[in-house]
Design a protein around this nucleic acid. Structure first.
Length: 270
DNA sequence: ACTTTAGCCTGTCGGC
DNA sequence: TGCCGACAGGCTAAAG
């Protein structure tokens, strides 16, 4: 569910409540997430003080001197900071009790997310092989162009591959391709260098803007203080099948690429 | 070596 | 009103 802007919104929301605080207890009600919650998280996290909360791709890393918690929100996960004693619901799987008296609560109806443990100085294997951050310097049009040569995959599917670039999921891939005027089904290797320059710029612009809006809320995304994201109103193609393109008026089309629904304007995107 | 598919889960929505 | 299938923001591991 959450893509980079939602994860970054979550990071910014929880960090002020976590950094410098001590974790007093870790309560796991449902250990069966995408992967089982490991013993180390329960045993080593309590008593530790949080040094920093970092984001890498769509993962959140909560660092302490004893090691780091590696969190992923999957499709339907969210993290909220709540007053101590707040009653847990059916999908509230993990609570961290903080010495501030508050709770960091992980909720995830579909349980595609995870809470894992990373020992100090031993990056988790899930982080190995990830592509560059889209908002970093390494990611630009030249990088996309070089990487895509000879690739027959649809550019939209290819752009969502986390080995190519991280953080871009189904919504923002569709939006960035629209903004760059690229048809989502075009072979990645057939997109010109100039188009990739534009695509890289649009990916950065859209992700940065979505972060300022607090992310996109379609169903259940909520930021840590319980407010929704406001980017939904800014969507040009995602979820707008049959509705007129906001630029040219042509009806937006829906197709399936790589088992994911894809939206585009047949006139604006070639 | 690469590309495609299956599967993990629950909730919601539209059609009948 | 209720049942049923389709679908949902992700990602890995297995199969091709």
């Amino acid at each position: 569910m959450p893509e980079l802007p939602e994860v970054e919104t979550t990071r910014r929301g929880i960090a002020p409540h976590l950094v410098g605080r001590r974790i007093e207890a870790v309560i796991v009600r449902q250990p069966r997430l995408r992967w089982p919650v490991p013993r180390q998280l329960r045993e080593r996290l309590p008593g530790q003080r949080v040094d920093a909360v970092e984001r890498r791709a769509k993962y959140l890393l909560v660092h302490t001197v004893a090691g780091s918690a590696l969190l992923h929100l999957g499709m339907s996960g969210s993290l909220r900071v709540l007053p101590g004693g707040t009653v847990a619901g059916a999908h509230d799987h993990v609570d961290w009790h903080l010495d501030s008296g508050r709770i960091l609560r992980y909720t995830d109806p579909r349980r595609f997310g995870c809470q894992l443990w990373q020992a100090p100085g031993a990056p988790h294997k899930l982080l190995a092989g990830l592509g560059p951050e889209p908002l970093g310097e390494e990611f630009d049009g030249d990088y996309l162009w070089r990487k895509s040569r000879g690739r027959a995959a649809a550019v939209k599917t290819w752009l969502m591959d986390q080995k190519i670039v991280v953080g871009v999921g189904n919504i923002y891939a569709a939006e960035a391709l629209f903004a760059a005027g690229i048809h989502p089904n075009r072979a990645a290797g057939s997109v010109s260098r100039l188009r990739y320059m534009r695509l890289a710029r649009e990916v950065k612009r859209i992700l940065e803007y979505a972060i300022t809006r607090g992310g996109t809320t379609l169903r259940d995304f909520i930021s840590p203080d319980g407010t929704p994201g406001y980017f939904e109103q800014e969507l040009f193609v995602y979820g707008r099948a049959g509705q007129p393109c906001k630029v040219c008026g042509t009806p937006i089309r829906a197709i399936t690429l790589g088992q994911r629904s894809t939206f585009y304007c047949p006139r604006c995107q070639r």
